[in-house]
């Protein structure tokens, strides 16, 4: 109860609120291109990337003061939040998406699918999101196994197994093509 009251009072006294909002806007402006690109790597699709970036930034921005007070690099924090949000979103949506083939994969406008002809990109699409997140954190973010484990809230052993499963399935996919 006291925690809630403190939270309420923290919300109430908005001393540096305007300053924090300006600071957050600046952060968004600067980090947006990088985050969209990172989201593209995570989701495999520019539209989902935009959705993911917007959702996560709104969440982070709504508690920006607290995020900054934690002392972590806010950009790293946002990226971790994106990886986790992507996995959660996929968990919620996968029932709708369970189809054997992506129906309109051939009809995507060419300027939106400039990566579509890349076999590795297609192979990545087949990975479950957690495996994909592990791969992206490892090869895009260059994080160590321990850092990935911390970012995704899973154990090092899970990171290793997810990573090796992902690499094996990428290899078989690419081997087939």
């Amino acid at each position: 109860m006291t925690a809630v009251l403190q939270l309420g009072s923290a919300v109430e006294h908005g001393g540096g609120r305007a300053e924090a909002v300006g600071d957050f806007a600046e952060f968004v402006r600067v980090s947006m291109p990088g985050l969209l690109r990172y989201g593209h790597a995570l989701t495999g699709n520019p539209h989902d990337s935009a959705d993911l970036v917007q959702t996560v930034l709104e969440k982070v921005g709504s508690r920006w003061v607290a995020v900054q007070r934690k002392g972590d690099d806010p950009l790293a924090y946002v990226r971790r939040a994106m990886a986790n949000a992507h996995i959660s979103i996929w968990r919620r949506r996968r029932r709708e998406n369970l189809v054997a083939d992506i129906p309109d994969s051939g009809a995507v406008a060419p300027e939106l699918s400039r990566l579509e002809n890349e076999p590795l990109w297609q192979a990545l699409r087949s990975l479950p999101p957690r495996q994909r997140a592990v791969i992206v954190l490892r090869y895009y973010e260059n994080l160590s196994e321990a850092e990935i484990a911390h970012a995704l809230g899973i154990s090092c052993g899970t990171v290793k197994s997810q990573s090796s499963k992902a690499m094996a399935s990428l290899r078989t996919r690419l081997g087939k093509d």
Binding site: V21, V28, Q54, L57, E58
Partner: peptide
């Protein structure tokens, strides 16, 4: 995704 959109969304959530 514009900065203004995100900042507004964050304020709304808060």
């Amino acid at each position: 995704v514009s900065t203004e959109l995100v900042v507004r969304g964050a304020a709304r959530r808060r």
